[in-house]
Design a protein around this nucleic acid. Structure first.
Ligand SMILES: [Mn+2]
Ligand SMILES: [Mn+2]
Ligand SMILES: [Zn+2]
Ligand SMILES: [Zn+2]
Lengths: 140, 140
DNA sequence: TCTTGACTTGGACAAAGTCCATTGTAGGAT
DNA sequence: ATCCTACAATGGACTTTGTCCAAGTCAAGA
C-alpha cells in the first residue's frame, strides 16, 4: 500500500476503491499529472470511476496537505504527491516539462519586512523557466 | 495619452479606438485585472467593444512584452502593465489581493548549476502567499 | 477620396472545473 | 452475518475562461 493511502486511513477516511486508485496513480511513476490525466490512468484500473470523483478526491487531498496543487501555466492544474520535501519547479517554456528543484537558502528570506505590507507571509512558490536540453537543441 | 499607447504607436500598430481603450484601462488606476475585468471597464468607455478584441489585444501586448501575464491562482489570468520594473507578487491566500513586491538579490542565483538539469534558465517567478492585514483580522 | 490589408465582431466551440440529485457502499452496530 | 446510515460516487448539466472563424469595418497611406 502506498504511503499516501496509509496516511489517509490514519485520518479516518473511508477507503473506497476510487480513493485507493487515485492515491496509487498519484504515488506511482508519474508526477505533476493533471486531473484528467489522473482520471485517464485511474480508468485503466477502475473503468467506472467518474471525473467528479477524481476532482473531489484530489481536492480533498490538497485540503489536508497531502498533495500540492501546481499551476505553472494558465492551463490545467497539476497535482504533486511530493508534499513532504519542500521543493520548487523548473519548467520548459516550450514543451512544458516540469522538474522538481531544490534552491539554496530560504526563499522567504529574500522578501524584506518593509516589502511585506503587513501580510503574514506563510509560503513561497518559485517557478524557474527556460528551455530544456531537448527544446534548446531543436531551436538551434 | 498613456505611455503604453505611445509605445504601441512606435511599434507601428494601427491605433483603433478599441486598442486605445484597452491600453487606457490597463494603464489606469487598477492593476492585475483579468481579461473580463478589462472588458467590463472598456465597455464603459466604448460600449460595443467585443470580448474577442480584448483578448486579442491583451495577447498581442503580452507577445511584445509590454504587458505581463500573471497566473497566481488557477482562475483567470491577470494582466500587469508594470512590465518595466522587474517585480514579484505577494498574494492573500484568502481574498486574492495582489501586491507588487521587490525581493532582495537575484532570485535566479538561488538555483545552483547542478539543479538546472541542462536547462537554459531565463526567468523566475516568485509568488509569496499569506494573509493580508484585513483577512488576518477577520480570521482572529 | 479610394483602397486595402489589418482589425473587430458575435457567436460557436473547447477546455477545465463545479454542482447537485440520485444511487451506492464502507464500516460500525447488532 | 446482516443491517443501517452517513458518507461517498455518479453522470450530466452548468459555469468560467479562453479560442477560433467567417463576415463586416476602418485606419492610414497613396
Ligand atoms: Mn513537484
Ligand atoms: Mn505586478
Ligand atoms: Zn522542452
Ligand atoms: Zn486578504
Amino acid at each position: 500500500m502506498s504511503d499516501l493511502l496509509e496516511r489517509l486511513r490514519e485520518r479516518g477516511w473511508r477507503l473506497t476503491a476510487q480513493r485507493r486508485v487515485v492515491a496509487e496513480v498519484l504515488d506511482g511513476e508519474h508526477v505533476h499529472l493533471t486531473a484528467d490525466e489522473v482520471h485517464a490512468r485511474a480508468i485503466e484500473r477502475l473503468p467506472e470511476i467518474s471525473r467528479a470523483t477524481v476532482y473531489n478526491t484530489l481536492g480533498e487531498m490538497v485540503g489536508i496537505g497531502e498533495v500540492i496543487e501546481v499551476a505553472t501555466d494558465g492551463r490545467a492544474k497539476r497535482y504533486d504527491p511530493n508534499a513532504h520535501r519542500p521543493h520548487q519547479h523548473l519548467v520548459c517554456s516550450r514543451c512544458g516539462t516540469i522538474r522538481d528543484v531544490h534552491p539554496h537558502g530560504d526563499p522567504l528570506a529574500s522578501l524584506p519586512a518593509e516589502e511585506r505590507f503587513g501580510f503574514a507571509v506563510a509560503d513561497v512558490e518559485v517557478t524557474y523557466r527556460g528551455l530544456c536540453p531537448d527544446c534548446a537543441r531543436a531551436a538551434a
